[in-house]
Each structure stands twice: as structure tokens, then as C-alpha cells.
Design a protein around this nucleic acid. Structure first.
Lengths: 219, 219
DNA sequence: GTCTATAACTGGATAGAC
DNA sequence: GTCTATCCAGTTATAGAC
């Protein structure tokens, strides 16, 4: 609570806003310090440099996001023990993303959503690895649940399909809209968003593995 | 065929490689001209500046891509006239992307895939609008076919779901791997990739619109 | 059409006074 | 902890010789 702690916070707040608006590459340290009304050297003193600041900004959003994911997955297990149906797994997994998007939209931080989208799909040298480390504990809990929910889908195929699911999440972050406009999912109600999303994703996830491309069904 | 035409081509070729490797922001004009073994001023002479060069690079890949999409859609109409089944529409729509990814992977241009992924989902000021203009004629042909193939899905819902499909495509570009490693779709055979992709996407696209979130099915 | 040279900037980082 | 002053590598763009 010392007054000195205020400086790093001001830096983070300004960086959050500017990384979001201009993108990770287009935002200079000098622009951040100007916006935060602190000195350029302060960033080096408190964070070590530009890259470390970038990671700190992302961590502030990602740590709570994944913590919530783990909570909701634990809840789902508690309720449905032992076998959690696919819909429930997906809802627990996806809800924190929709909540974060809604929160950011609500506070006028649409640009930060796009920034998160970039961080998900195009980490860049400064945050690559960091993103994956954040996601690992979630994956460790998620996959056993999925295997149990849709045992007919082979593990390898499941991995492929979940990668496509993550691509969709990324797209939702990247395509987030300002509060006035309708979002990609065309509603502001998170439960409805979840319904639409799960209705779209679950059938594909649970679908039988394609057998042979000669019997694909297009002929 | 004059020898002078060679310079713009060398510039484009080098830009293609470097925009891919380092990303649109991280790649300087000077790095491009160094790689192309031409002078910095040549870019300004032939293209007008850095942004115009960037657009030219993208156009070289996107124009054939969308032309092929229109061809395949026309083929599908010719074969299935008048009503093209959903699988066939999706295959025609998705195949050019998979072909381009395969071609780029084959020629060691994985990084360019990631670049395309960025261009799709995070256009950036220099290429925003340009991307959409490229896509419009395809959309004009695609949507009527989709409406016919899955008339039960309301137009608004269809639009939402197709946005999710595009997010998946973007993810495939962004997640492209070098020739040795297995790709996101875990096979190098384009027909098999299409099978997997369509098997995952078609059920969700055709699914009945979610009725109410209180009957979602997670209880 | 092509090149050299340079103008006019901006970027991150840091030494050293306070 | 905070600031000034400065370093230096890098950028786009252009004027002007050839």
C-alpha cells in the first residue's frame, strides 16, 4: 500500500490500453510511459524491460481466466460425478472466455480482446511459451473429462478437434465488437452465447471419425 | 519480359518471404531490399511505398485463392444442380485454403501461412478493407448455396456460424506446421483433411438452432 | 530505372545525478 | 525510486547523380 506501488500499476494500466489499441508491435515503450505519465526508466526499473512488461500485462488477464476455468471444471465434476456430459465440459471450458470478452467489451476495452486474440494465435517471440505454460494445467484437467464424455472419439482425433475449438475461441476474441454493436454470437447474454457456441461445437466434436474420403458424401 | 520487370518480381519474392518470417510489423523495407539485392528507392519507385508493397504481396496469393473458390463453387453447382448438398458446398469453399496451406508448406513457406492467418483475423490498418473486398464476391455466391443446402437454419444464425467457420480457417493458417511435422489436421492428404474438417464443421452448421438456454442439456 | 547519400525520426536501453 | 541526458541501432522517405 505504499505510494511507490502506484507507479507499476499506472504503467500496467497504460500498457494494457496501448498494447490493446495498437497491437504488441506497434506500441512503443515511450508511448506507454507518456500515457502513464511516468519516466521511461521506470519501466526498466520495475519490470526489467519491454518484454517483461508485455508478459505482466497478459498475466494479469490470463491467470484469473484459467483459474476460473479450473473452478468451473471442478464444479462440473462435483455436480455430474463421475462422468460429465460433453455439453457441461464445453460450457465450463468456454464460459470464462465469454465472460472475459463481455467484461472487456463492457469496460470499453474491445481492442484488448483483439490483442488477446493475437496473443492466442500469434504469440510472437516475447510471449510464445508463456501462453502455453498458462494453458497446460487446464489441458491436464480438460482432456480426461473429454475422453470420458465422448469415448468413441480417438484421442488423436480429439486433439485435432480441440485445436479447431481453440481456433474458434481465438476468432471470438479477435472478432469482439464494441458494446453497441451485436457481437459475433449476436447476443449479449452469456448463457445464450454458450448455447449457440456449444450447439455449434458439440455435434462436430462428438461426430464419428470420418471413415474414408471416398465415401465422403459429396458425390 | 523486359529485364526491368525482374526488379519488382525480386522485391515481391523477398517481401513474401520476409513478411512471412517476421510478420507484417517486424519486417522493415530495408530488410526486404537487402534480401532482394535491390535498392531501397526501388520499392518506392515500383510500388509507391511499404504499404502498397504489402498489399501487392497479399494480392498475389489471395486473388488466385478466391478465383479457385469461385471455380469450385461453380463446379459444385454444375454437378449438383440445382441444390448442392452442404458437404459439397463446404468442400468447395474450404479446399482452396487447404491447397494453399499445402503449397506453402511444401515450399518451406510455413511462416507465410501464419502471416495469412494474421491478415485474415487481424488485418491491420494497411490491409483492412482490402481483405474484405477480396472476399465479397465469394460470399455473394456462397450464402445462397448454403441457404439452399440447410434451409432450416435461419439466415442470421447461418451468418454467425459461418463466422465461426472462418475462425477455424484462420486457425488452420495460423497453426500450419513445417513439412516434417504433422499438421493441425494430422495428415498431408488434402482429401482426408477435407473429410476431417467437413466432418467437424457440417454437423454444427446444420444443427437446429438452440431453442432456449434453460433447456440446454447440461442439467 | 537504378543507385548513393542523407535527412528526419523513432525505437529500447542505460549511466549517473538526485 | 525517480529523473535527465545520451547512446546508438534502426526506420521510412527523398533529393539528386548517373
Amino acid at each position: 500500500m505504499t505510494e511507490s506501488d502506484e507507479t507499476p500499476n499506472r504503467i500496467i494500466a497504460a500498457a494494457e490500453r496501448l498494447f490493446a489499441e495498437g497491437g504488441e508491435d506497434a506500441t512503443s515503450l515511450r508511448a506507454i510511459t507518456r500515457a502513464a505519465a511516468v519516466n521511461v526508466a521506470a519501466v526498466h526499473y520495475h519490470f526489467g524491460g519491454r518484454d517483461e512488461l508485455l508478459r505482466a500485462v497478459l498475466d494479469r488477464k490470463l491467470a484469473p481466466l484459467n483459474a476460473r476455468r479450473l473452478d468451473l471444471l471442478a464444479d462440473a465434476i462435483a455436480v455430474h460425478d463421475p462422468a460429465v456430459p460433453l455439453d457441461a465440459v464445453l460450457r465450463a471450458f468456454l464460459r470464462p472466455d465469454l465472460e472475459l470478452i463481455a467484461e472487456l467489451r463492457g469496460s470499453g476495452q474491445v481492442a484488448f480482446c483483439r490483442f488477446m486474440g493475437r496473443a492466442y494465435s500469434q504469440p510472437g517471440p516475447a510471449v510464445a511459451g508463456f501462453m502455453q505454460r498458462q494453458f497446460e494445467p487446464v489441458a491436464a484437467r480438460l482432456y480426461p473429462l473429454l475422453r470420458r464424455a465422448i469415448p468413441a472419439v480417438p484421442a488423436a482425433e480429439l486433439l485435432v478437434r480441440m485445436r479447431l475449438v481453440v481456433a474458434v475461441i481465438t476468432g471470438l476474441f479477435a472478432g469482439a465488437t464494441p458494446p453497441g454493436e451485436p457481437g459475433p454470437l449476436d447476443t449479449d447474454d452469456i448463457d445464450e452465447q454458450l448455447d449457440r457456441l456449444v450447439a455449434f461445437l458439440a455435434p462436430g466434436l462428438a461426430a464419428p471419425a470420418s471413415l474414408s474420403h471416398t465415401i465422403g458424401g459429396s458425390g
